[in-house]
Design a protein around this nucleic acid. Sequence first.
DNA 1: GTCCAGGGCCTAC
DNA 2: GTAGGCCATGGA
Length: 195
Amino acid sequence: MAKRLEHLYKRLLAAYGYQHWWPAETPYEVVVGAVLTQNTNWKNVERAIANLRKEHALSEKAILKMDIRKLQKLVRPSGFYKQKAERLKLATRKWVELKNADLSAGQLRSEWLSVKGIGKETADSILLYAMDRPFFVIDAYTRRFCKRHLKKEFREYDDYRWFFEKNLPRNIELYKEYHALIVEWGKDFRPQKSS
DNA sequence: GTCCAGGGCCTAC
DNA sequence: GTAGGCCATGGA
């Protein structure tokens, strides 16, 4: 299965080229994007991030001190805006606490999962793309990819993650690029309802 | 008008 | 421990 995974990776790479994910200019922007993209089209996330940038609010300090109502208004295009404004503040507080902390990868993951509004996918996205820790990110695209190309389905999030982590070399850049390519693939092949 | 998107929480059983 | 409801905007 390891061979199969690496073969698929090469095919995706040949088809789409290097993606250089996550689409963000700073590690903190990864945190913001990871929260805002929960069950949401990335296009809408971009609008919200553009609003924050326009207000010079794309920084830890600005988000933490911003009035919650104003923050809600700025992130509104990304949907679920009341929750997301709250989650953004909580995630930012944790990010400030953890970004220079001397903790193991496992300890960092536990810390993120203890934040209300941060589940496994969001945590792993932040850990991989903002903190350079080796966790393979599982999202809707990844599950679809497994089903289509590997005939594999699991019930638990971590079962998907272990599958990738066990069958791939433990390489941060590979994890980043592979997941990025899966998303790129996923945008082309949305599940179509049978006619 | 209906369906869906790079989830996660809460509640009921 | 798990299925179902809820959160909400913008594009197809």
